Amino acid sequence: MSSPTPVRSLFVTLKRSFAGTRDSQLRILRSLGFSYRQQTLEKPNTPQIRGAVDKVRHMVLVETDAQRAARLAAEAAAAAPRPPVRVRH
């Protein structure tokens, strides 16, 4: 059995705004590179990044590269045009 492929990068999306955020959490979000809500950043999978993301996990969505690819494919399939319905009377 083959071993699972290592996760090389993490895709981190800011889901909540900076309003009402503690100063320590705001500094963490800024250090990660966030500047606005719904922004997605690709970060390397390192213990430092994982620790920073863990401190603000209630504000962000974290996906691996495989999870992100699967989600984007599912969203594209859902948004794809469907064939027209033909009704014969």
Rank of each mutant, 00 (worst) to 15 (best):
M1L: 14
S2T: 13
S2N: 09
S2H: 11
S2Q: 14
S2A: 12
S3Q: 15
P4W: 05
P4M: 11
P6H: 11
V7E: 08
R8F: 04
R8P: 00
R8L: 14
R8A: 10
S9M: 07
S9H: 15
S9D: 12
L10V: 09
V12L: 09
T13D: 01
L14T: 04
L14Y: 05
K15C: 12
K15F: 01
K15W: 02
R16H: 13
R16Q: 15
R16C: 09
S17M: 07
A19Y: 03
A19F: 01
A19N: 05
G20R: 13
T21Y: 00
T21N: 00
R22Y: 01
S24M: 13
Q25P: 02
Q25K: 15
R27H: 10
R27K: 15
I28A: 07
R30Q: 12
R30I: 06
R30N: 07
S31C: 01
L32E: 03
L32S: 04
F34N: 10
F34W: 06
F34A: 06
Y36A: 11
Y36W: 08
R37W: 06
Q38H: 03
Q38N: 04
Q38A: 00
Q39E: 14
Q39P: 02
T40A: 08
L41T: 09
E42G: 05
K43L: 15
K43C: 12
P44G: 05
P44N: 03
N45M: 01
T46S: 10
T46D: 05
P47Q: 14
Q48K: 13
Q48P: 00
I49V: 15
R50M: 04
R50W: 04
G51K: 15
G51L: 13
G51M: 14
A52P: 01
D54C: 06
D54Q: 14
V56R: 02
R57Q: 09
H58Y: 07
H58I: 07
V60Y: 11
V60Q: 09
E63D: 13
T64W: 00
A66N: 01
Q67Y: 01
R68C: 04
A70H: 06
R71V: 10
R71T: 11
L72Q: 09
L72F: 01
L72S: 06
A73H: 03
E75W: 04
E75P: 00
E75I: 11
A76M: 07
A78H: 01
A78E: 06
P81T: 15
P81L: 13
P81F: 02
P84S: 15
V85F: 05
V85I: 15
V85D: 04
V85Q: 13
V87W: 01
V87D: 00
R88L: 07
H89Y: 10
H89A: 13
